[in-house]
Amino acid sequence: MDRKAVRISFIVVGLLYAIAVLALATFQLVDYSFAIITIVIMCVLFSFGLSGRLPLNREKPDERTEGLELKSLSYSWLLTLYFVCVLSLLDHFKVVSLSGSIVLPAILFFMIISRYCIFWIIGKTGENVQ
């Protein structure tokens, strides 16, 4: 499957998913946490769709891009670890009451966004990845 077909198929799937969730929300058949998870899934679908890539059959990046990707993933995991620690402390000291249905989508969303942000920042600043 070429990149254009992958891009179109993911965008179509994302749009269908969005329409389905909007229809469910209209008839009050879904709750708040489900809506957040849906948004996260849509972000993933659209990000793959817009870049025209799949994790398994994507073309091999060059050495600098590969280094940037590995570095951004590593920082993303580290930041997510800190994020989980902060959430744990907030819950432990009863600052906020957190449940799994809130924390899991929040972590998913944080990991995805932080990975793209860090990739963009490192790529723009031209930090040496060697």
Binding site: P61, D62, E63, R64, T65, G123, G126, E127, N128, V129, Q130
Partner: peptide, 22 residues
């Protein structure tokens, strides 16, 4: 050389140290 143009840009600016292969 089999890389992206951005890699050449950063290479020329001295902001990227290439691998021995590159």
């Amino acid at each position: 050389t089999g890389v992206r143009r951005e890699t050449i840009i950063f290479l020329e600016k001295g902001k990227y140290n290439p691998s021995l292969r590159l």
